[in-house]
């Protein structure tokens, strides 16, 4: 469903010059699976997911979503996925209903189909009380519900959640994870990025630990713990990151730019 091979991304910024955000990552995500990208801030999770959603272009490598190439077929890719991120906000001056309807129309859904789907989604996500509430008047939890409704209104086979729980209180975060879990049960192919260990432990079928644009480890939670002989994901995560930082400082990695970035 999602196939990523040797994906790289580098960019230049005014202060630091050339930066390598992704140094060649590869992974596959299947339908009915939640794939967790776990990493500290700046690990490259958002960059990877922005490339998958065609918002950014990769510097190298390849990625396909439901068979469509993210570089050569961006319009098709965007139709295959729903993207929810801490960065994808809701419109202040639109009501919940108007917002979801707007994106449904952009996805080209027919009027009747759109209305039916919206009724179902608003019921399922318990959003009927915010149908006519403007985005600016909504709480963060309400806004996140609208974001999810917007992302699934066209019933996409692939869903991407990029640190979608950041800034949410425990109750809303738990409800969101419940929704993600339900979507997995419906056979959706889901990528879920987070830097919170417990979320990854509870939700993900497969986890990739990411740091400085690289995968440090990848596999099911049990496999990861067993291979590294750890009992706790947090310990495993901390150990891998520290180990990698030590090697990085020692200049052990060659990046696409030819040196440690």
């Amino acid at each position: 469903m999602i196939h990523v091979r040797e994906l790289t991304k580098s960019y230049t910024d005014m202060a630091q010059g050339r930066n390598v955000a992704l140094a060649g990552i590869s992974f596959d995500v299947m339908p009915g699976q939640i794939y967790g990208l776990l990493g500290p801030n700046g690990a490259g999770k958002t960059t990877a997911l922005r490339i998958l959603s065609t918002v950014l272009q990769p510097s190298g490598g390849a990625a396909t979503v439901n068979g469509y190439n993210v570089v050569t077929q961006p319009a098709q890719v965007r139709r295959q996925l729903g993207f929810v991120s801490a960065n994808t906000a809701v419109y202040d001056r639109m009501t919940g209903w108007e917002m979801v309807e707007y994106f449904g129309r952009l996805y080209g859904l027919e009027d009747d189909l759109l209305r039916n789907r919206m009724e179902v989604i608003f019921d399922r996500l318990q959003m009927n009380d915010i149908r006519d509430v403007l985005g600016a008047k909504m709480s963060t939890g309400m806004q996140q519900k609208v974001s999810i409704a917007r992302a699934i209104v066209h019933d996409p086979p692939v869903l991407i959640f990029d640190e979608a729980t950041s800034g949410l209180d425990v109750l809303v975060a738990r409800a969101l994870m419940g929704t993600v879990s339900e979507l997995r049960d419906q056979g959706k192919c889901i990528v879920f990025s987070t830097h919170i260990m417990r979320e990854a432990e509870r939700l993900c079928d497969k986890i990739a630990i990411m740091h400085r644009g690289r995968f440090l480890a990848e596999g099911a939670l049990e496999e990861l713990l067993e291979s590294r002989q750890e009992n706790d994901l947090e310990e495993l995560f901390f150990g891998l990151i520290s180990q990698h930082d030590e090697r990085w400082l020692a200049g052990a990695f060659e990046t696409p730019a030819g040196r440690n970035e």
């Binding site: 959603s53 065609t54 918002v55 319009a75 965007r78 139709r79 996925l81 993207f83 991120s85 960065n87 994808t88 906000a89 809701v90 419109y91 202040d92 994106f103 952009l106 996805y107 080209g108 974001s147 917007r150």
Partner: peptide, 14 residues
Amino acid sequence: ERGTLETLLCSPAG
């Protein structure tokens, strides 16, 4: 600034 541009960029609109 409000974060809604990225929302639109992810949509099918070119």
